[in-house]
Design a protein around this nucleic acid. Sequence first.
DNA 1: CTGAAAGCGCTTACAG
DNA 2: CTGAAAGCGCTTACAG
Lengths: 366, 366
Amino acid sequence: MPRRRLCRSRVIRLLHATTVAHRVHPAAASLLMPTIFDVAREAGVGIGTVSRVLNSSPLVSELTRQRVLAAMHRLQYRPNAAARAFGRRRTATLELIVPLYARAFFLDLLRGVQHALAATPYTLVVHTVGSPQERARVLNECCVRASADGALLVWLTPTEAFVERVVATGFPVVLLNAVDARLWSVAVDHASAAASAVRYCLGLGHRRIGLVDRPADPYDPASEGICRRGYQRALTAAGLPAVPAYQQLRELSAAGGATAVEALLNLPQPPTAVVAASEIQAVGILETARAHGWRVPADLSVVGYSDSELAEFLGLTTMQVPLQDLGHRATQLLLDVLTQPDAEPTTIYVPTQLLRRRTCSAPAVP
Amino acid sequence: MPRRRLCRSRVIRLLHATTVAHRVHPAAASLLMPTIFDVAREAGVGIGTVSRVLNSSPLVSELTRQRVLAAMHRLQYRPNAAARAFGRRRTATLELIVPLYARAFFLDLLRGVQHALAATPYTLVVHTVGSPQERARVLNECCVRASADGALLVWLTPTEAFVERVVATGFPVVLLNAVDARLWSVAVDHASAAASAVRYCLGLGHRRIGLVDRPADPYDPASEGICRRGYQRALTAAGLPAVPAYQQLRELSAAGGATAVEALLNLPQPPTAVVAASEIQAVGILETARAHGWRVPADLSVVGYSDSELAEFLGLTTMQVPLQDLGHRATQLLLDVLTQPDAEPTTIYVPTQLLRRRTCSAPAVP
DNA sequence: CTGAAAGCGCTTACAG
DNA sequence: CTGAAAGCGCTTACAG
């Protein structure tokens, strides 16, 4: 028996006549849902007009619009998202690709992304990446036909194959905290951030300043020693040497911070201040310094990197990375690129800001 | 001019003849992409056969399958996701709805969800909810026609309107850490968890045990004082009174834990152990106890709730909530419900486990 | 095992 | 401003 619209609409009548009491199988349910045809008949117009109402086209008289809306309401009509995506060749979804180690910042970032999306019809598909193979797999499936309209790659260097494909197809992609000249990027200027943290310590009178830097993120080789350049730049500008022993590259964890600060404080000339490249390392530093009887900030000033409720509770002075704002900006940029796909890609740098709290002071022993 | 397939395939030939050098407008790009028709012609078969290969149907001879696969490869064919979703009336996407305050556990949960999805063709759409209005809006748009095949609601009590609609349509929904008899649920037995934390303290010899409980989550009224019942049950079972002053209901933050422990330790008969309903409150307790010169665990034993790298670093003894496992199970359950939509909803309780570390011991002064 | 064809529910020129 | 109709790219009975 050929499926016919007449059939379905009869079932709908039935459905509205009787009270829906029993659970319906999804496939069956789909057959019972009213379509644009049912709405058109109910309103006494053509399907084109219904579609125009659906898409807020100005090519509909107010009277007709009201009639159609009323019909939709009566039938409890809901447009079929898949059919719309197919018909208009746009899915109204964006992909977000994010590595699993993004623990500390993911939710803030996501908040910014969703905030930027709130006023739009866009929906967000999230892919997490937990290994290099997975990155390759996800990027290979990303930005293919009609899966999404654009993609946001967060804290992740894309594979070369991905970049080439995206450039060739013109698929809209924005990188967040990664830079590729061929793609749009929103980036944090980590070097500047580190430099201003160091300058702040210098301003307080510190001359021996340590750095606890982070190793390479698994999918972002460029992130290794991300603060080193800024650290060295600031010291050089102040006429001070950048002592290698003061620069610790440690695991991105509280334990990493702990090991680093122990190494620093056991030096013959221990630093009086230390700049950490992450908040979690800073927490390890705070905890360990205290366990060894070093007072913070009297004996050791500590500057963290990025912020959280915990950092605030601990009174950690820190370089604030505007995560939510980053997410918002990158998403807004992606939305812009969606409407003007031919513009030349650029990189936007987002500034960080020092949050002065209680873990820094002038050195007790200069 | 009517659009015709012949047109498009000619363009494809062109595309393959010349080298693709210039960026193409998405709309134009979509016109250039090979379809199932192009593959069929290239392989010398019908489109039905190509479709069968695409869907791993057994109704294709191995030889034909190879020919079709080769043709796909030659044309760099990618199936159009939107067209598939439309044609088969399933989207191969699942929705995840999660409140924004889910900071601590969201990423672990997501990891479990993605892990369960890794071997499937399903893709994940994430909606975050930041306010009651937003919850209503998101739930209203969720589980409507062809937007997704199912939904996972995390740490969130659904609105009544949502439950009714979902029950009426039979749309597959699983709740995680929320219970509704009309829907499938995966839940943490918080009362049991709290009870075993208390029993652990009792076993160490504590007789005065405090509780720092959490307020209601914004979208889950049932979460207020979530550990209280188990706490009281365990004390009663041990023949001890549940002293009201020992039960603090405080903000879910380090500051909340701090205030609570100050109140507890200033009591004429301060508790020798305290069970916290969250990790972040436990951190506040640890920090504040230390600031007041109370040694942990000698003067005060502390049990936290849920785990993290920080908790491990601090040596926090805690009730571990298997977040990743929760995410995995709920997702697996949703996938099961997808295939057998007529089964009766049930609730699965997932047990927690005590992680013994360094913040608990027998009381110094019993 | 395979092909021809109808159908999925919209959008969008096109003609009025 | 509106309707009739073609088209989006697949899936899936149906007939062989």
